[in-house]
């Protein structure tokens, strides 16, 4: 069976800089795949390629076996691709509820308002529905982004450092949520520097360094991999 999301041989060059170099990764339905790597390894760039925000120099992206490499961002979203952003990108002047509502409506949800409220409650910010998004503290804003991504009715959920800005309690709750989403059959791809979260909730982890996948496997395998320790985890 082929994976829900397949990234094959993707490279991205910015002038002389090679941000992503012949990367191969995949994400399966029902599991959480970790994507870790040093700063500047190309993780965000890879997310941009997958969602069509950044054209790849070479390589293909397939979703459930269909090649989507040439589709614009919004078409990919409609096929079931949703993401959050490392630097928050909410609709700042809309209310929290409307932020999620817009996404639910795009997804063709028959009862978008109910869905939006339910998703906000699910991520734990239901009581903020009436606030204006711009007034939220970072932690809550991250959770609203997750709710908005879920409203797209995704098959693949890409999360770019969702735990940065969350404190320890919030991070733990996020971990529980992501596991339960995977349990419902979503393919979750998680970029995160909080190693305890990654080790705890990921089924498999791929490690990117200088744009290349240098290791992948279970969290335990990856953690013990000498190249990963050298490039990313450090001796500690």
């Amino acid at each position: 069976m082929s994976a829900t999301l397949e990234v094959t041989g993707v490279s991205v060059h910015f002038g002389g800089v090679t941000a992503v170099d012949d990367a191969h990764i995949s994400a399966d339905a029902g599991s959480v795949t970790g994507l870790i790597g040093p700063n500047g390894a190309g993780k965000t760039t890879l997310f941009n390629v997958i969602t069509g925000v950044q054209p790849a120099t070479t390589g293909t992206v397939t979703l459930e076996g269909t090649d989507i490499s040439r589709l614009p961002t919004f078409r990919r979203a409609r096929l079931g691709m949703a993401r959050t952003f490392q630097r928050l990108e909410l609709f700042w002047t809309l209310s929290v509820l409307d932020n999620v509502l817009v996404a639910a409506e795009q997804a063709g949800d028959p009862t978008p308002a109910e869905t939006a409220q339910r998703l906000l409650e699910r991520v734990g910010v239901g009581q903020l529905a009436g606030e204006q998004a711009g007034s939220l503290p970072t932690g809550s804003a991250r959770l609203v982004e997750v709710a908005r991504a879920l409203a797209c009715e995704p098959k693949v959920l890409l999360l770019d450092e969702p735990a940065s800005g969350l404190d320890e309690t919030e991070t733990r709750q996020l971990g529980v949520l992501l596991r339960s989403l995977a349990g419902e059959g979503l393919a979750v791809l998680l970029v995160e520097h909080d190693m305890s979260l990654v080790m705890e909730i990921c089924d498999t982890v791929s490690v990117l360094d200088l744009g290349r996948v240098i290791a992948s496997g279970t969290p335990a395998e990856v953690r013990a991999h000498p190249m990963v320790i050298e490039a990313y985890l450090g001796a500690a």
């Binding site: 925000v53 614009p72 961002t73 979203a77 409609r78 949703a82 795009q106």
Partner: peptide, 8 residues
């Protein structure tokens, strides 16, 4: 950007 990624 966010608009396009939610399918707009």
């Amino acid at each position: 950007l966010a608009g396009a990624t939610v399918g707009m």
